[in-house]
Computed example of a mutant assay.
Amino acid sequence: MIAGTHAVPGGAKPDRLISFDTRDVAVDDRIDYWEERCAERVVGLHCTSMSESGLEARFEYCDFGSIKMIDITGNQHVIERSPLLLRRFEKDSVFMTFLRKGSAFVNRAQSCTVVGEGDVVIYDTNKPYMHGFPAQMRHVIYEIPGAHFRERFPRWELNEAVRFDALLNTTRIVSRALREVVETDLRLLETPAQRQLHEERLWTVLETAHALSNGKARSAYHTAVRERVRQYIEANLHDPELCPSGISREMGMSLRQLNRLFEGDANTLTSMIQTRRLQRCHADLARPSHYPKSISETAFNWGFRNLSHFSRRFRAEFGVSPSAFAEMARR
């Protein structure tokens, strides 16, 4: 029996918000209970605890759509995802974690990463790892589907756990941005549109983390300006006039300076704008009950001027025409 299932306003599925707590079961059953519930909701893992009171851990789960959030509070414990568990419980996801309280370590690829309060760590679930907490802790995990992650970051190989230190000038921008997302009151995310916006905020944090870890951001200032540009693009995708020259004027810099900010990225700014528009159209067409607009209205709403051009680009991006995709979503 799962404890603490919440009713969710706005027509969301009843299991969008779920929680369970090991203190609801006998001490001797807590480890088995935790492993079973985690295997159901997150990943198959093995858990141990040296606490005399047994494992005392609470798990809160929220489904935003494609990205899931897991908020875990507990006492001392260690979890392990071994090669055997990788085969038994297959999972193709990337975890972006934020340590809200305590300290931790991540043992991965023959290296151990020590994590402090406020740090962000990104790793995938396809390779063995061990994650430990020596004392009272609280951390938040955002689970990103592996296919979606690779689509956005095709050359970002997570061979080791990637840590972003909350205290370093060059990396704390990631910690600050993710903290703002983590501290959002989930009760305010009542509608699909609000939850989609929440997901986009997470993708923006990942974009910043990607820029830092791949050397595309040369300083904290450079990272902050890139972030401002991305936020401006997201806020103005509806505008068909959105283009690099207009963005440079809005940012108070030359077009050359703007392009240098994103030098080395896989896509140009123009391609980035088009890709984000296509992704927004795809998301709207995938939920016709919430966005009951025609294909042309959807395309024009997200800044496309030419329906034929939109259809060609949509098919090239997603392998199916907008009309065929919308028909599949209505079934």
Results as ranks from 00 to 15, higher is better:
259 N>M: 01
327 E>A: 12
52 E>F: 08
143 E>K: 04
183 E>H: 12
270 T>Y: 04
134 P>Q: 01
142 Y>S: 06
56 E>T: 02
76 Q>H: 05
262 F>N: 00
291 Y>C: 02
324 A>K: 12
217 A>E: 08
250 E>G: 03
297 E>Q: 12
311 S>W: 01
12 A>E: 14
91 K>H: 11
29 D>G: 07
84 L>V: 04
14 P>N: 12
89 F>D: 06
53 S>V: 11
68 K>F: 06
20 F>V: 03
138 R>A: 15
303 G>W: 02
286 A>W: 02
63 D>M: 09
64 F>G: 02
184 T>S: 03
242 L>F: 09
120 V>C: 14
35 E>Q: 12
110 Q>C: 11
324 A>T: 15
248 S>A: 10
217 A>D: 05
317 E>H: 11
239 D>R: 12
288 P>K: 01
183 E>P: 13
62 C>R: 05
67 I>A: 03
249 R>Q: 08
89 F>E: 04
127 K>M: 13
97 T>L: 10
125 T>F: 05
200 E>D: 07
47 C>K: 03
112 C>W: 04
141 I>K: 12
18 I>W: 00
255 L>Q: 03
140 V>A: 01
112 C>T: 13
66 S>T: 09
256 R>W: 06
96 M>W: 03
42 V>I: 05
236 N>H: 15
299 A>N: 00
296 S>A: 08
18 I>L: 15
173 I>E: 09
326 A>Y: 07
123 Y>I: 05
257 Q>D: 06
325 F>P: 02
75 N>D: 05
47 C>G: 11
147 A>D: 15
284 D>M: 10
261 L>P: 00
267 N>S: 02
26 A>H: 15
223 T>S: 13
41 R>W: 15
20 F>H: 01
305 R>K: 12
136 Q>I: 12
126 N>P: 00
37 R>M: 12
312 R>S: 14
246 G>Q: 01
291 Y>A: 12
203 W>F: 15
8 V>Q: 15
23 R>N: 12
276 R>Y: 11
3 A>C: 14
185 D>W: 07
110 Q>M: 10
63 D>F: 10
105 F>Q: 08
13 K>T: 14
193 A>F: 09
255 L>V: 04
82 S>P: 02
219 S>T: 15
37 R>F: 09
252 G>C: 05
270 T>E: 04
308 S>D: 12
54 G>W: 05
14 P>A: 11
108 R>F: 06
304 F>P: 01
